[in-house]
Amino acid sequence: MVKLQSDDMQHHPKRLIGYARVSTGEQAHDAQLDELRSAGCHRIYEEHGSGTSRTRPVLARLLGELTAGDVLVVVRLDRLARSLSHLLQVIEDLVARGVHFRSIGDPIDTTTPQGMFSLQVLGAAAQLDKALVAERTKAGIEAAKARGKRPGNPGLRERRPEAIKAVSKARDKLYLDELMASAQKWLPMVRQLRPQHSWDNVVEVLNRRGQDWTVERIRRAVHRLVREKLADQDLLTRSPRRPPEDHLMKLVAAIAIADPGLSLRQIAAQLDQIGEQPARGGKKWQPSSVRNLLDEAHRFGLIRR
């Protein structure tokens, strides 16, 4: 269920940003744009493709660029999402980032209590539908067992090539759908860090922000989005080698996090005590060198001011 704090509801939006999707052969393009402009959208992102298409590069880019206080506006709900579950996932992610959502033709507007109530009703309906599907599936399995039938796909049990191929294709589609639904949570940070920083560093930053990645999984995810032309090829460029300063940046950040009251000179003294050599040479650490590493750690997202 999507939840919004009361103070977020009272927040005045900074920008109204429109999203228009036009199916192949559809003639309502200009009408969508006119409605979005009349609603006050100063920027409009246009997408061309069917509602069931899983590749929506314009939408993926837009979701990644929205910031807290923005309002994403569409003419109708079906312009944004492929399904009810996809719609709720997108809106929940937006609300968590402080971004509002409004549909001109539907009673959905997360800047108002009434619009949030309508969204809660949609969420409850989606949960009920999911529960009913699960119940029917369970009943079907029990009935099949009672008739002596084994659950599961007989084609997979018999290792039929066409069944294996179909399941593999379905899993691949599900994986891509999940990536696209979650991309706005992690792809902007990947774009900010790559290729200047290693995949290890990217994972460290994402996980410090409450996510759960491994190097193998994040590389696979980015490779897939690049293959679908939903992310730039440059993200896969080899990062420059920078182990000494990288190590020192993390070390200085760790010292500062462990004892936020330490001065630059005191951090420098601790580095001298543990025998760390200054990155730029010399025998003793200087406060200015510590400051440079702290600034880098702040830009990198390891510490917050």
Rank of each mutant, 00 (worst) to 15 (best):
I104F: 01
E46A: 06
R79Y: 11
R160Q: 15
S83K: 08
L293P: 03
N207H: 11
L271R: 03
F300P: 00
R219G: 10
A254R: 15
V252R: 03
L132E: 12
S118T: 11
A96D: 06
P195L: 07
G275V: 01
T67G: 08
Y19I: 04
S53I: 02
A134I: 05
R136D: 04
L262H: 10
R304G: 04
L179F: 08
R265V: 14
G49C: 03
G115I: 09
E35P: 00
L206S: 07
V74R: 08
S263N: 10
R224Q: 12
K229L: 12
V74L: 10
S198A: 12
L294Q: 01
L248F: 01
V95F: 07
G275D: 02
L230K: 01
V167N: 13
R15H: 15
D78G: 05
L4W: 12
P260Q: 11
S50C: 06
G301Y: 07
G49H: 11
R160D: 09
L174A: 15
R191C: 12
E204F: 02
R79A: 02
K185V: 15
L264F: 12
R304S: 13
M116K: 02
D177N: 15
V205N: 07
L262G: 02
A163I: 07
A183K: 08
I267Y: 01
G18C: 11
W199I: 01
